[in-house]
């Protein structure tokens, strides 16, 4: 209850802070709409030459694309603004004030900023999923939806763990803006099912940098595809990734040297 109030207080301030840049709303809606339109156009080109891509039909890939945009929207709405703020604050030395607050520092560090305009990606992503499912004429049961939601949750948890681990590097290297680039490089591969990639990359994207669990696995649960890996692996991997990332963060904090005056 108290925690909810704290998050709300930060959220409110972040919202007020953002309203200074109202013009960004329109820009972002246009940007996400164009981005999705171009991605769908790209799919149309690919599927003009083939009926299946790595065993996936166009409609199934469309659902996957929707998942990609939805997750991407969540990342750019909350996760990346908050964690980039950590990076900035550590460099400027104001992260000290974060640590001086009697509240769970990790939770606040991960949620305290949000760029509300990027919600447009979430909404459009959901819309694309819906269109894909409609064209598939998929019969989504309540149980099916629940499995999908669980797989999505696991995917988001994995994204969070990766972001957090990359952010934690700031305690040693201080300048880590490039982590956004590294992350995006891998995350971009999530626009397509991992089956389209060569064997070695597929292994990398499944077991090392588990993008497969972020888009491919949730999409396959709801489009009725054969599971890529046993489904129950998703929550296990998500839990393991989260645990590892949180421990790494705690370890990083111990090494925090705070910018000197």
């Amino acid at each position: 209850m108290r925690l909810a109030r704290v998050i709300w207080a930060f959220g409110r301030a972040a919202l007020l802070d953002e309203t200074a840049y109202r013009g960004e709303l329109l820009g972002n809606v246009i940007r996400s709409a164009l981005g999705i339109a171009m991605a769908i156009g790209g799919l149309a080109v690919v599927f003009a030459h083939t009926r299946v891509l790595g065993g996936w039909t166009m409609e199934q890939v469309l659902v996957l694309l929707g998942v990609y945009y939805l997750v991407n929207g969540l990342v750019s709405t909350v996760l990346s603004p908050s964690l980039n703020k950590v990076v900035q604050e550590v460099r400027e030395g104001t992260f000290d004030y974060m640590l001086l607050k009697p509240a769970p520092s990790l939770l606040l560090a991960s949620t305290r900023r949000f760029v509300v305009w990027h919600v447009s990606d979430v909404v459009l992503g959901a819309a694309v999923i819906w269109v894909g499912l409609a064209r598939l004429e998929a019969n989504v049961t309540l149980a099916g939806a629940a499995v999908f939601a669980a797989a999505m949750t696991a995917g988001v948890a994995i994204v969070y763990a990766i972001w957090l681990a990359l952010t934690t590097l700031v305690f040693w290297f201080v300048r880590v803006e490039n982590i956004t680039m590294i992350f995006n490089l891998f995350f971009e591969t999530g626009r397509y099912p991992v089956e389209v990639y060569p064997f070695w990359l597929r292994q990398l994207l499944t077991f090392v940098f588990p993008v497969a669990f972020i888009t491919t696995v949730p999409a396959q649960t709801i489009t009725g595809r054969e599971p890529l890996v046993v489904l129950w692996a998703a929550p296990l991997i998500a839990a393991a990734a989260l645990l590892a990332a949180v421990r790494f963060w705690r370890f990083g904090l111990r090494n925090y040297t705070s910018a000197s005056s």
Binding site: R2, R5, V6, W8, A9, F10, R12, A13, L16, K101, P102, A103
Partner: peptide, 12 residues
């Protein structure tokens, strides 16, 4: 004043 509100919530 807005920052004060944040601290008010954080410190309960």
């Amino acid at each position: 004043g807005d920052s004060f509100q944040v601290n008010k919530a954080v410190f309960g």
